[in-house]
Nucleic acid binder design. Structure first.
Lengths: 118, 118
DNA sequence: TTGACGCATTCCGATATAGGAATATGATGC
DNA sequence: GCATCATATTCCTATATCGGAATGCGTCAA
């Protein structure tokens, strides 16, 4: 087996920095492709290809407007990512990220730090 | 060019579901490799390889204990992911995620909603 | 030492990516 | 129709993956 397709889910689609940039730009408002090409400084076919991936995972929607194709953000597929990382936030927001296991510590809601095992 | 290495950053490392599982397990406490092998139901070399990737992006630390190697979560490298997705949360937490551009709408604070999909 | 255990690494194959170049498609205007 | 703009697609190469099988290596026990 090879690596999972970039279109497998939002996790894979968003692993590519350029695609994140595109989403960031679209977060500021819908835009036709050429706008993105100019803003990103990338070759047009490249942008189209990235947009295709984003389309296939549902992160963007397209709307035809004359000869332009206007892309619009659809952030919904990002939710699983947010839901997955959020619990880990505690880990780095606490000062003792080097202790045993942070998330476990949190379950006991501050406990004093004694080493227990699992 | 090919796709970015899985060890390029946390985004790429975490795009693989099994690696997320591993992190989830380690969130519950540090564990030796064989524990993970049993819990995941994967071949041992596979787990070792995934752990290597996680190590290279700094998401886990290892500690030798006799003949075992105990892995511990280090969530810090996940912060960039959290920081990147968080702003998008607004998009799906609002009921009009299908409108023009959600984040832009939010700037004007409430406006009206049309339900539509494709 | 010998053997068993715990884990990591290497070799292999199939897959599919990002990017570049060239080309195709589609809508608009004349 | 024909030229042009806006965008998508195809062809190509280099690279790096995930997984399996086999093997290497360090540690512990007798």
């Amino acid at each position: 087996m090879a690596r999972a397709a970039t279109t497998a889910d939002a996790f894979n689609a968003v692993a590519e920095p350029r695609r994140r940039e595109i989403l960031d730009l679209l977060a500021g408002g819908e835009r036709p492709v050429n706008d993105l090409v100019a803003l990103l400084g990338l070759a047009q076919p490249l942008v189209s290809k990235h947009l295709r991936v984003l389309r296939e995972v549902g992160l963007v929607d397209v709307r035809g407007d004359g000869r332009q194709r206007v892309y619009r953000l659809n952030a919904a597929p990002l939710k699983p990512i947010y839901d997955w990382v959020r619990p880990y936030e505690q880990a780095w927001s606490q000062r003792f990220s080097q202790l045993d296991t942070v998330l476990e510590e949190l379950k006991t809601e501050e406990d004093g730090e004694n080493g227990r095992d699992e």
